[in-house]
Design a protein around this nucleic acid. Structure first.
Length: 591
RNA sequence: GCGCCUGUAGUUCAACGGAUAGAACAUUGGUCUUCGGAACCAAUGACGUGGGUUCGAUUCCUGCCAGGCGUACCA
């Protein structure tokens, strides 16, 4: 709930830090106070406490009504069982909330003066970018925005893994591509080389799985030559790595990820190896089965962590050990947040434990988001294929939206009865609008569920735009913009409003919903959960549509009412725009 | 086997230990001489299972059943 509203009500009721909630049905009131805690403290029956509360309030207000003009805000107080429900005056509550809606609405200063690094999506080169990675980006993007809205200084960073068996397999795949049906000319001429690499990786992995042992030596050989810096293979590595990183850079821009920096695994690998030696000396690590270096964490119930291969090669933890301290050294932050799939939860517990044993006590947070399961099979794995590529999904949604948009904004006579289709759009306008809509659909789809939940991905549902979806919300904003255009832009700044004209329940619902926004932001912040914002946008849009459907804005009875309703509408659009912005979703003026 | 997570409507998801368990999709039936129908309204329909803690449990603890992920040389 909005702090201004809460303060005001507490002032009237003579309460402090009370927890307000919303009654289950509108006819039961606008806000409710539960009496369970008070009743327990006083050792009384909560139902009796509630009715006593109401009686006492009514007695007081009748005596002080003249002196206390604030009482206009609360029009009635009723007891419902163990609850005391407040009925608010629509005009008063509208004035209170709407005048508080500005560009800073919803912001807080929880993170004032704090600098936090956030690492995401940390994808691998030489692999494809699938919708799991995209979910990672969505989670990260929103955390950055929500943290910034809360006053934090954020440093988004990307850690790109350009080293390891996946690279070796991919390079092997390029050298042997004809064996599994990819001609080298196809690779050279590929329009999207980053995507092509991903395809080769998947095909090579599958092929290698069948002939596992046959090629193991060859893979080891490639790895050795690569680590030894042999010219030919290094050239291939550098060239293909650039394909990946160039492609990723474009994707990041499109998804609105703005990394302050990128650290490559190859940069921190050597330092990581030194740290392993240090851990050995300190007896935190030891030589395990087959000569690998391990840390025995079984007394912390964390099993055994592998920190270096028996071949002397590094594993993920080898480099992560170095990366962890590197983050704090380079950016002078007080916390580091890392976003990965939740299948790595256990690994990060191990990593943090090893760091702690080594005397590293910086605050590190790992956020695991749930896997995306495809409807026909289980986990998506980049190695086994069966993944939904981000680019494929994006292109399909784009095509669908483009068709839809052309349909609405062509000059064809078949749609001439629609008021909007008379307006023929340029190719450029169609393209830019569809571009924004596509990203909106993608990002909203990824964020309508809680981040840590495993989600079943349904392609049909992702491409359907009814109900709980981005187009529904963007459409609401577009309609409000349309009202503004029709009214005439020059008048908008000086919009007069008369809060006394706000009497309808639909207005009150809207305004009270708007007042929830700051709380929603805080909730998203606390739980790293963007779905509460997505849901909030939908609820607010739905309430506006309800209002819009019942009460005409531009055809209202008189000029004052038109202006007041238009003012209300613009405020709704402002809050929606701001909330969508936290999800890094842009709005469109028309669609 | 052990660790972590998850079982809510036909489906996909919600619900600080509190009121009549909410949405969306699907299905069925309505609204409209449309301030943009990518809209609005309504009906149908659910807490995996057995205990326990509590004034009160979908929520906390626990047994069982079912699923997912992880469990030293993949990341």
């Amino acid at each position: 709930m909005n702090k201004i509203l809460q303060t005001k009500i507490e002032e009237i009721l003579g309460l402090e830090n009370f927890n307000f909630s919303t009654p289950p049905k509108p006819e039961m009131g606008d806000l409710s106070l539960s009496m369970f805690v008070i009743a327990k403290e006083q050792g009384k029956n909560p139902v009796e406490v509630a009715s006593a509360f109401v009686e006492n309030f009514k007695l007081q207000t009748s005596q002080t009504a003249v002196k206390n003009p604030n009482n206009k805000l609360i029009s009635d107080v009723k007891a419902f069982g163990s609850y005391v429900n407040l009925f608010l005056n629509t005009s008063e509550v509208s004035k209170l909330i709407l005048e508080d809606v500005n560009e800073n609405f919803g912001n807080n200063n929880i993170g004032q003066g704090k600098k936090v690094l956030i690492e995401y999506p940390s994808q691998n080169t030489h692999k494809e970018f699938h919708i799991g990675h995209f979910r990672n980006v969505c989670v990260g993007n929103t955390i950055v925005q929500v943290y910034r809205a809360s006053g934090y200084d954020m440093v988004p960073m990307n850690y790109v893994n350009d080293f390891g068996r996946h690279v070796v397999k991919c390079l092997w795949g390029i050298l042997h591509s004809s064996e599994f049906g990819v001609e080298s000319s196809e690779i050279e001429n590929a329009e999207n080389k980053q995507k092509m690499l991903g395809e080769i990786y998947v095909k090579a992995s599958n092929y290698l799985k069948e002939y596992d042992k046959e090629y193991n030596e060859e893979l080891d050989d490639i790895q050795k030559r690569l680590e030894g810096g042999e010219e030919e293979i290094t050239k291939l590595f550098l060239e293909t790595r650039k394909w990946s990183t160039d492609g990723f850079a474009e994707l990041m821009k499109e998804m609105k990820v703005e990394h302050d920096s990128i650290i490559y695994e190859s940069e921190v690998k050597a330092t990581g190896q030194k740290l392993v030696d240090e851990l050995l000396e300190k007896k935190i690590a030891e030589v395990g089965e087959g000569g690998a270096i391990i840390a025995d964490l079984s007394k912390y119930n964390l099993d055994i962590a592998l920190i270096r291969k028996s071949t002397g090669g590094g594993v993920y933890m080898t480099s992560d050990l170095a990366l962890s301290s590197e983050k704090f050294k380079r950016y002078d932050v007080e916390e580091s947040i890392n976003i990965t799939g939740s299948e790595q939860d256990f690994y990060f517990k191990q990593l943090f434990k090893v760091l702690e044993l080594n005397g590293f006590h910086k605050k590190m947070t790992h956020i695991g988001y749930g896997l995306i399961n495809t409807p026909n099979g289980g986990k998506m794995s980049s190695r086994s294929g069966g993944v939904i590529l981000y680019e494929d999904l994006r292109d399909q949604i784009f095509d669908y939206l483009e068709k839809e948009t052309r349909n609405r904004h062509s000059d064809s006579s078949s749609t001439a009865d629609s008021a909007v289709s008379a307006d023929k759009w340029s190719e450029e306008k169609i393209n830019s609008t569809v571009q924004i809509l596509t990203m909106a659909v993608l990002k909203f789809t990824m964020q309508k569920h809680e981040a840590d939940k495993v989600v079943k991905f349904d392609f049909e549902e992702a491409v359907s735009f009814e109900g709980f979806s981005a187009p529904y919300i963007l459409y609401t904003v577009a309609r409000i913009n349309s009202l503004k255009r029709k009214f005439g832009k020059e008048n908008l700044e000086l919009l007069e409003k008369d809060f006394d004209l706000f009497t309808e329940d639909e207005v009150k619902n809207l305004v009270l919903k708007m007042s929830d926004f700051p709380e929603v932001v805080e909730k998203a912040l606390q739980n790293y959960n963007s779905s509460v914002i997505a849901k909030y946008c939908f609820d607010l849009a739905k309430m506006y549509n309800d209002f819009y459907n019942k009460h005409s804005v531009l055809k209202a009875e008189n000029e004052e009412l038109i202006k007041s309703r238009l003012y209300l509408s613009t405020k709704v659009a402002e809050v929606l725009t701001k909330a969508l912005g936290l999800l890094t979703i842009d709005i469109v003026d028309e669609m």
